[in-house]
């Protein structure tokens, strides 16, 4: 009995020390950036925002051409209408954010000490609706929330990602997102990191694998031949499905924590919203 207790204590201490050894958010970010720099010294840090395009000058040139006159411009305009239409009380989304909503998206997600949870930009938009007597949008609905962010986030184009992790609650949320990123899931047994850390810049059949730093800067995106609108969390859901894992809820705690970790790893990189991606 005594021996068992002793062994359990030891195991507990081991678990504790392993936890304490996990890297600080900033060390984790630096490690991931440096690993990409070592493997691809010719790719500039600020070009990490282009993800897979950063590895292919041809694909990048095609992207630049398309972005000169985006074929999905009218969709962004629908989002602008949503953003500019006043609530019943006469107030607007712009009244909910400092600077009328300019240069704010790079501060999201943040950890809210009062609510004890991660708050994404989409949650802030819904909070704005609630404060002005409007029902919240479903975060998975691309025709409402998706379009709204497709415009609202463009107001922060050029802002540098600026995620903060301070305090034990914030750190726990970051760690939860970190765990999600490195945990294998689905029948195919991939973690996010299996591709986007271990095989960055390599080619999966025909597609380059993007690097983790920069991945959260270009959302939402209009993807593929039909320019389907994807928010970042819709992309998470699609990725999970591809590895044959049942996706988590878009806007739920798991994906919010993942987005928190994921966005921190893009700190210092400029945002650009409503872009084309394959």
């Amino acid at each position: 009995m005594k021996q068992t207790t002793w062994m359990l204590t030891c195991l507990g201490m081991l678990a504790f020390s392993a936890d304490a050894l996990s890297l600080s958010p900033e060390q984790e970010r630096l490690n991931r950036v440096q690993a990409v720099q070592q493997k691809y010294p010719d790719i500039k840090f600020e070009d990490y925002v282009y993800g897979a395009l950063a590895f292919s000058p041809d694909a990048k040139a095609q992207y630049e051409n398309m972005m000169a006159f985006p074929p999905f411009e009218s969709e962004i305009d629908k989002g602008r209408q949503l953003w500019e239409t006043p609530f019943n009380n006469g107030k607007r989304y712009a009244d909910c954010f400092p600077g009328g909503g300019r240069n704010v998206a790079g501060n999201y997600p943040y950890y809210d000490e009062t609510m004890k949870k991660v708050v994404t930009f989409e949650m802030a938009l819904n909070q704005c609706r609630a404060n002005n007597g409007a029902a919240p949008y479903k975060q998975a609905d691309m025709n409402t929330m998706g379009l709204l962010t497709a415009y609202a986030r463009t107001l922060s184009d050029g802002m540098l990602m600026n995620i903060k992790v301070k305090g034990s609650g914030a750190l726990a949320a970051f760690e939860s997102g970190r765990h999600f990123f490195y945990q294998r899931r689905g029948q195919l047994n991939f973690s996010c990191a299996s591709c986007h850390v271990d095989h960055v810049g390599e080619i999966l059949r025909t597609e380059y694998l993007s690097m983790l730093p920069g991945q959260t800067t270009h959302w939402p995106a209009f993807r593929g031949g039909d320019y389907a609108l994807f928010t970042l969390q819709r992309r998470y859901s699609a990725c999970n499905q591809l590895v044959r894992a049942v996706p988590m809820e878009i806007g739920g705690e798991e994906y919010n924590n993942l987005e928190y970790f994921h966005s921190y790893l893009s700190n210092g990189l400029p945002l650009k919203s409503s872009v084309f991606r394959k």
Binding site: Y182, R185, Q187, A193, S194
Partner: peptide, 17 residues
Amino acid sequence: EQASLGMAQADGPLTSQ
């Protein structure tokens, strides 16, 4: 079987460490 494999996977080690 697939459900139990999924649960075992969730307790497995993290990648890329």
